[in-house]
Design a protein around this nucleic acid. Sequence first.
DNA 1: CCGAATCCAGATTGATACTG
DNA 2: CAGTATCAATCTGGATTCGG
Lengths: 141, 141
Amino acid sequence: MMAGKRADEAARQHLVTGLLERMLVKDVFDETCIVNQALVLLADKWALLVLIVLMQGTKRYSELQRQIRGVSPKMLTQTLRSLEENELVARQVFPEVPPRVEYSLTAFGKSLSHPLAALCDWAFEHEPRLRKVYAQARPAP
Amino acid sequence: MMAGKRADEAARQHLVTGLLERMLVKDVFDETCIVNQALVLLADKWALLVLIVLMQGTKRYSELQRQIRGVSPKMLTQTLRSLEENELVARQVFPEVPPRVEYSLTAFGKSLSHPLAALCDWAFEHEPRLRKVYAQARPAP
DNA sequence: CCGAATCCAGATTGATACTG
DNA sequence: CAGTATCAATCTGGATTCGG
């Protein structure tokens, strides 16, 4: 138990140290920093949810809308367009009746699987605490 | 080279499959899904940048403002308050003149190091492509 | 039916100036 | 130093409408 905790901490320190080496510690978060630019593309709740759902495989527009509860058609379209422009998602239109449009991750999008999975894993691991802070942060609707 | 690529793909599939098992594939992205709640807290550019900077250690308000280029005092304060409420960041006020306030990650916040490092690693690995899409997504200022 | 475009009220953001 | 206050501008989201 104790050893496991120390191992986790050691792993964390290794990761953080590796990062710091690359970031050169100071003033890296301006507009030219690649981490900053990446966050501009990714720091969006709907975009992340779409990417996570598309990790399951190719989906139609309506499937995405069904799986991602609470997304309006407008925001879904907007998010998909943005992801397409950023080359993370591919859009394929089938000239049929009724119309069919399929979305899938590009190879670039698939390369995000590891970071996104790490984020989801974190959420599952810390579920009780997350629920607590989420509930107290937003008074009952 | 080829073997490395295959290993990466295998690792990705393992991660994704593990996720899918937990997500039970369908309709998990409503308000009660823990991933959704986690994203509400984290899908924010400034919050992520603050967390990443605080991975370097304890910082004063002005240090954060200097390292995170482009953040206004208002947004920095707002972001820090939110992170504090979510128990990811601890705030300590020193009753001195001139005033001093220090921010650091809580244990909970430190538990985010792995996912955040994975995200940063991804950004560094895909820097050329990221710069390309970032540039074409936003016309020269 | 499915996918997308338009309009508009309300929330969020950002730059700047100001205060204990 | 570490924030607030203020105001303009942008973004969001829902309802509605349109086209294939």
